[in-house]
Structure formats: C-alpha cells, structure tokens
Lab assay of single mutants.
Amino acid sequence: VTTYKLVINGKTLKGETTTKAVDAETAEKAFKQYANDNGVDAVWTYDDATKTFTVTEMV
C-alpha cells in the first residue's frame, strides 16, 4: 500500500489530500470521485516519481 497525493488547482476548490491505495490506478479512481463530488472538472496529470496527481481546472 502506497500513499498518493492529490493537488487541486480549482476555480472554487484548492488544496491537497492524500489516499492510501494498492496502485496508482486505484488512487486515481478515488481522487476522480472526490473531485467529481466537489464539482471539479479539470485536466489531470500524474507524476510517478512523487506519487502525486495534480488536477487543474480550466478557467
């Protein structure tokens, strides 16, 4: 189990959160659900070296 981080650069929601998951795909599903629940529709990137997902909402 690995800890993954999500950085949110949204128009109305900004911040960071983490989740523990067995792999990046599982973490991504959890983070996308979190973003969807909070109304963030954005572009996703992932950095495997830092285990960090970044979501940037387009203006």
Rank of each mutant, 00 (worst) to 15 (best):
L13A: 07
T54K: 03
W44K: 00
K29S: 06
N38L: 15
E25Y: 10
L6H: 01
T18C: 13
A27M: 01
Y46A: 00
V1S: 08
Q33T: 08
G10E: 04
T17Y: 15
F53Q: 00
N38I: 15
A27K: 00
T19K: 04
A30M: 12
Y4E: 02
N36T: 12
K14R: 10
N38D: 06
A35F: 15
K20P: 04
K29Y: 06
K20N: 11
T17I: 15
K5S: 05
T56H: 08
Y4S: 02
I8T: 04
T45G: 04
Y4H: 02
A27R: 01
D48H: 07
L6T: 01
T18S: 09
A42S: 08
A21L: 02
V1W: 14
D47M: 02
Q33S: 08
K20V: 14
G15K: 13
T19R: 05
V1I: 12
V1R: 08
T3Y: 06
T52W: 00
A42R: 05
E57C: 12
N9V: 13
A21M: 02
L13N: 07
I8A: 03
T18K: 05
V55G: 04
G39I: 14
N9D: 08
K5C: 07
A21I: 02
D41H: 11
K29I: 10
T2L: 09
T56S: 09
V1K: 12
T2M: 08
N9Q: 09
E28V: 05
E28K: 12
A27C: 03
V40Y: 11
F31P: 00
L13M: 12
N36S: 13
T2Q: 12
E28I: 07
W44F: 11
E16A: 08
K29M: 10
V43H: 10
T56V: 08
K14P: 06
V55K: 03
F31A: 01
V40G: 05
T3V: 12
T52P: 00
N36G: 14
T12H: 13
T54A: 03
V22L: 10
K32R: 14
T56E: 07
E28Y: 15
G10D: 04
K32W: 05
N38A: 13
M58R: 12
T17L: 15
K29Q: 08
V7S: 03
D47L: 02
F53M: 01
T50D: 03
T12C: 15
F31E: 01
A49S: 09
A24H: 09
T17W: 15
E28W: 14
